[in-house]
Amino acid sequence: MVSEGGLVGRRPVGVPAGDVSDGDLIQRAGAGDRAALETLYSRYARSVYGLALRRLGDRGRAEDAVQETFVSIWRAAKTYRPERGPGAPWLYAVARNAIVDRSRARNEPAVEVPEEASDEAGPPEAAEQSWLQWRVHRALEELPENEREVIALAYWSGLSQSEVADRLGIPLGTVKTRTRAGLQRLATLLEGEL
């Protein structure tokens, strides 16, 4: 179930994303641009938090891991090299490392078996699932609010399309139109994953 304060409601505050790529934002952050880091935060806070929750299994520790991830991004951003790849995998790697470090620092095992992305120890399926979740949650952040709202309620609240329409006070046809438009937008954003 998705609460009203969840995907539909509370969102991180950041600079309007515009068309600036993740890689550009990382480079700007590397030059000391805090606004760029805030925009990255607005794009990735949920993805990082979701990854941390899944691996650490505790909200408090996951919150700390989010903070440590963005401290790491802030400090390591100047080492990012766009010619080696886009920003999303780099951010994923930084987040994963910060979360694993946190797990190790506590001398406690992670809830999941630690995976090292695509090419190291750990079940490849788990690594793929984490990456997929990361990408999908990140893509959701790009949707217009009205499409994201409808998709969240339709897919994760257990409501039928008619119930979603009642809940939002919009016609059923609008729910279907927005769902379809949202899926089309996601399909474009997730081009490489489909």
């Binding site: 609460s3 995907l7 505050v13 949920r46 401290v71 997929l132 996601l186």
Partner: peptide, 19 residues
């Protein structure tokens, strides 16, 4: 994919802004 990955978590109040 949406059914597979599930919803992103709700951000707690301490995470609504860049820490």
């Amino acid at each position: 994919l949406l059914l597979e990955v599930g919803p992103p978590p709700e951000l707690t109040s301490s995470l609504t802004r860049l820490p």
